[in-house]
């Protein structure tokens, strides 16, 4: 009985999963290299930043809002971190914590404004995006490289941990290559979000507010704190993404991650989450990100193709899913 419901409820998710698998298989048929472990691992490691941001965005969209500031916040976080470490000689650990706290705080402020003054999330987060981007460029006009030795260690963390557990050196090296710190963090963020959304009161409150804010309030759900929290989480995830950016590229870049917010919104919607909120899951977001990754990786591998096709295919998928959602909602 439970299984039936799980299956039925996962309708849109199932469609996304099917599309994902189909795309993967199709890509693999056209490009046999696709079926290799390193490519699959590459999905995650090349898109760790994307996944983290999309996970944060899922919270916001589920609650019925939207956050346009995440790309700018990620860029700002990355450059702030780079400058703190390189130019102000901060301890990397403190710097990371500081940047994360900043992201959470800014997100929380936006959430507060949105809720208390009933401002449209679109505009407030748009302003936040401008501010974050401006802040990033004010901190530094160009990208800044990080030469901090601790960073090397962090980058090498998975391999080191495995070695410490007595794993063969070569194997540890290989696994460390496939699963760098960035990927580990991304997976951790995903899992944390999954647990939070599915198994905590807060997570269920997020769904409630997105599903029907009026009913939720009448049922006693604390709307204010929930809404502020989702934006704080999104901001925190964006900051985390910026941190991961520095970990992968050993630099911070204020001009990076333009359009990241749109891409993550697209991934969330393709993943089966309604833009109006209340329905969806991070699992869907993961699938959406994977679809993105498959498309982009494949296009990169095919020399002849313009990278613009990624945008077009994603846009078309997005359209298809939006129309699908509309048809489903109409039936209900």
């Amino acid at each position: 009985m439970r299984a039936i419901h799980r299956v039925r409820r996962a309708g849109p998710l199932a469609i996304t999963a099917i599309v994902c698998i189909a795309l993967y298989v199709a890509a693999g048929i056209l490009e046999p290299d696709f079926f290799s472990m390193s490519i699959v691992a590459g999905f995650l490691s090349n898109h760790a930043v994307f996944l983290i941001v999309a996970v944060g965005m899922t919270f916001v969209i589920l609650s019925g809002g939207i956050d346009l500031s995440v790309g700018a916040t990620a860029a700002c976080a990355s450059i702030a971190l780079a400058c703190l470490i390189e130019r102000s000689s901060w301890n990397p650990a403190f710097a990371i914590l500081f940047v994360l706290a900043g992201g959470v705080l800014i997100g929380g402020c936006m959430g507060g404004l949105i809720h208390s003054c009933r401002l449209p999330p679109f505009i407030v987060t748009l302003g936040g995006m401008f501010i974050a981007r401006g802040l990033a460029f004010t901190i530094s006009r160009e990208s800044v490289s990080i030469h901090e030795p601790m960073y090397e260690q962090i980058y090498d963390l998975p391999a080191s941990v495995l070695r410490a557990f007595g794993v063969n050196d070569a194997t540890a090296e290989r696994i460390g290559f496939l699963l760098p710190t960035a990927s580990v963090i991304a997976i951790a963020a995903f899992l944390a979000a999954l647990v939070m959304l599915m198994r905590t009161r807060f997570g269920r409150n997020v769904y409630a507010i997105g599903g029907s804010e009026q009913s939720a309030i009448l049922m006693g759900v604390p709307a204010a704190s929930t809404k502020i929290a989702v934006y704080a989480i999104s901001g925190g995830c964006a900051a985390l993404a910026g941190v991961v950016h520095t970990l992968s590229l050993f630099s911070g870049d204020p001009s990076s991650h333009v359009m990241l917010e749109l891409d993550s919104i697209a991934a969330v919607v393709i993943g089966g989450t309604l833009l109006s909120g209340g329905i969806g899951s991070v699992v869907g977001t993961l699938l959406g990100v994977t679809i993105f990754a498959i498309i982009e990786t494949w296009i990169t591998m095919r020399e002849g193709l313009n990278s613009a096709w990624t945008r077009i295919i994603v846009g078309t998928l997005l359209l298809a899913f939006i129309l699908l959602q509309r048809a489903l909602v109409r039936r209900k």
Binding site: H5, R204, Y207, A208, G211, S212, Q214, S215, A216, L218, M219, G278, I279, K332
Partner: peptide, 11 residues
């Protein structure tokens, strides 16, 4: 209340 105050998508 008359408007059923439940969250439609939740179980």
């Amino acid at each position: 209340y008359q408007e059923i105050d439940l969250i439609p998508y939740l179980s």
